[in-house]
Simulated scan of single mutants.
Amino acid sequence: MSPTLKPTRPPHSKSRTHPTPVPDLHEIVIQTRAVAINPVDFAIQTVGTGLFPGLTFPRTLGMDLAGTIVEVGNAVTRFKAGDRVLAHPDVLKKTAAGAFQLFIVAQDNMASHFPNNTSFEEACVPPACLSVAACGLFQKDYLGLECPTVPPTPNGKILLVCGGSTSVGCNAIQLGVAAGYEVVTTCSPHNFEYVKKPGAGYAFDYSSPTAVEDILVVLKGKLCAGAVAIGNISPPGNGTAAAEACLDIVAKSQGAKFVALAMVYQGKMPEGVDGKFIIGSTLKDNELGAKIFEEFLPKALEAGSYLYAPEPLVVGQGLERIQEAFEVVKKGVSARKVVVSL
């Protein structure tokens, strides 16, 4: 039997016990050792079916974890019991995939090995936001960029990431650089050096009244591959300024006229520019999942060219600390990812 933390009715949660899950053909069962908190977790808890119609409660939440495999499905060949992995489980598909429990199931194409010198608390940081960034950058119905490689092959194009110090932003920067793009990003001035660690070539103050004009100077004479604009998923309109800046820059620069939106944007698109809200789990159903979690990420982590960013902020140990961790995220953290050890 496996303890789990389930919202019984938004915004409440309760610890329950249920049978340890059994993997389907292409699933793995993971004993969870550390989980990270995303704003979407408590957004689901608070808004419930208003955010994701079709969800039922009680439901175990959580989209970021690291742990040890205890069982694999009959069609799984890449993993075995005892392997240390990070994973992005499909919590929207089944409650047995929610990260906030001691044993979970995940699809094998949404998990990666990580080096032995990495802690579980570090390893649980990237998966979900890595998936969001990857969908926005590489899927054909978004920016459709070339996939990342180890080592990267520079292509001379520029990628704009508005919100580079966020969890999605850190991953978008790293994936963009690994795919051969020079990255321009926006953030608070105190995070300028921070966003350059994952590879941003330029960092601009998002609140500056001249930010758009300053970025256009950098882009002059170069091809822009498009942009990723990042804000919180709830409430609608959060991150509007980032979206509008990205849309304005893309409209006025040479190159792709598309902005991948990691937010609910309700404003008007400039003429000739398109944008789309990123559904960050769709890579599990196409070839991108394996390209990122199987072909790219393990090599990049082993080579030390991909950072576990933002840095983990461990706020406690045990499932009973999850709700407390939600409150820490709600109050706001900068350039950190809130983590709970299990």
Rank of each mutant, 00 (worst) to 15 (best):
F103E: 09
V85T: 11
D90E: 08
A81P: 07
L86T: 07
A106N: 09
G73Q: 01
A75W: 02
A99E: 04
T77N: 11
Q101C: 05
F100V: 04
V72Q: 00
D83K: 09
I104W: 00
M110Y: 03
G73A: 01
A81Y: 04
Q107K: 10
M110D: 02
K94M: 00
N109I: 11
A97Q: 11
S112P: 10
L102Q: 12
G73Y: 00
F103M: 03
V76S: 05
L92W: 04
L86R: 04
R84Y: 07
H113N: 14
N109H: 10
D108N: 09
K94R: 04
N116V: 15
N109R: 12
L102V: 04
A75S: 13
F100Y: 15
S112C: 14
S112W: 10
T77H: 11
K94V: 01
N116P: 07
A75M: 08
Q101K: 06
A106Q: 05
D83S: 10
A97M: 09
V72L: 00
K93T: 08
A87M: 07
V105T: 15
D90C: 01
V85A: 11
N109L: 11
L92Q: 06
A106D: 07
L86E: 06
F114D: 12
I104L: 15
N117W: 13
D108G: 03
P89E: 14
Q101L: 06
K80M: 06
G82V: 06
V85L: 12
A111V: 12
V91S: 07
H113G: 09
P115K: 15
D90I: 02
L92T: 10
N109Q: 13
I104S: 04
H113D: 11
K80D: 06
N117P: 09
A106S: 15
F114M: 12
A75R: 11
A106R: 05
H113T: 14
N74R: 07
A97T: 03
A81Q: 13
V76G: 04
